Amino acid sequence: MPATRVLVLNSGSSSVKYQLLDMAGPTRLAMGLVERIGEAGARLVHSPTGGERRERQQPIADHEAALRAVEEELAADGMGLDSPELAAVGHRVVHGGQRFSAPTVVDEEVLAEIERLVPVAPLHNPANLTGIRTARSLNPDLPQVAVFDTAFHTTMPEHAARYAIDVETADAHRVRRYGFHGTSHAYVSRRTAELLDRDPADTNIIVLHLGNGASASAVRGGRCVDTSMGLTPLEGLVMGTRSGDVDPAVVFHLSRVAGMSVDDIDTLLNKRSGLLGLCGDNDMREIVRRREEGDERATLAFDVYVHRLKKYIGAYSAVLGRVDAVAFTAGVGENSAPVRQAAVEGLEELGLALDTQLNTVRGDTPRLISPEYARVAVAVVPTDEELEIAAQAYSLVSR
């Protein structure tokens, strides 16, 4: 019987999310989360499909301890890393630079390259590396596959990926637009084409991945031609705690006038900006509630957020020339009808319109929320990054 299962690991700075999928279905066999690694109150939540949810609260010192705890839970269900049905472990790796444009079986050379990229992804790549190394130690014979957030965006033309700074300096320090959330953009763009009953190779789509982190992409014929995040996940849309686009001179100004250090400004733009910085909340549900009650700061935050969305929809309409669909995904994109309505409102000249009733319907399957007459379809497509990582990893090892 061929091995058809893939364990997907997403190792964050203080957490590990995981899912075990059987690609013969595909079906989800188990999922779980280890959070607050290295902190008081660390816990593991494990949910086998069709089984009872289990929770463990115990000291979890580091990612290695976290992954060993995950292995114990999976093994208790007969689905451990030594299972002959397990074909691979698929790892989400945030930054793959220019080199990695496809899923890659990990060896020492690949590990070394991921490590070389730590300076441009200091919060994420180290945790991703720990996840890979620990999984390898638990079963050295099992293929470990790295699936890179940046890979989908490596198809951007050079004129979209380049910043207009000195070329030698940029090349020496790898300064260019890389983009992130690539597995989500790949999955959602393909699923949107399927929803329209069209070939992805003949479909132009704007994908809006709106979670606590947010990014937009312009996808022409299944290939990314532009994206909003850049060298790091800070550029682009307004996010939960990140500023998105700002004048680069803001950094110099705050250094000279406010006496802030580079680290202070880094913290400001990444952790104290975005929706949180504008109104003190980074939960869009709370912001919408406050806005409906007339709260001025919440209204400002909502309006700034939506204004940036409209700018990117317009810009990417120009980049693509012809747009077949705009797809909303991730936590805010999938669940906030007010954000979708405000983002599309006023863009009728671009062919966009919403059906108000369809927009308010909740669901966990891809759906259209635009009227039949609209020239450009508007879709809500729940993302599934774990399934995309599993599919890419399995495709690689099952050849």
Rank of each mutant, 00 (worst) to 15 (best):
E372C: 04
L33K: 08
E85R: 15
A65W: 06
S137D: 13
R162E: 15
P248Y: 02
V34M: 07
A342F: 03
V16G: 09
A301K: 08
I165D: 11
S47M: 14
V188M: 04
L352S: 10
G211E: 02
A102C: 01
V120H: 02
Y316L: 03
E158L: 12
G179R: 03
A249S: 15
G314M: 08
L81N: 11
P143S: 01
Y373Q: 15
L320P: 09
A330W: 00
N128F: 05
G131K: 08
V319A: 12
S395G: 15
V89Q: 10
A30T: 09
E334L: 07
V344E: 08
E235L: 11
N128A: 06
M284K: 07
G230K: 06
V339H: 10
D384R: 00
N282P: 09
E52S: 15
E108Y: 05
E109W: 00
L210V: 11
G41S: 06
G230N: 06
V106E: 00
S228G: 12
A343F: 04
H159L: 12
A127V: 00
E348Y: 03
V339P: 12
Q341S: 15
F100C: 02
T155K: 02
F100G: 01
V378T: 11
A24T: 12
T183A: 09
V380I: 10
V238Q: 10
A216C: 14
F180D: 06
L117H: 00
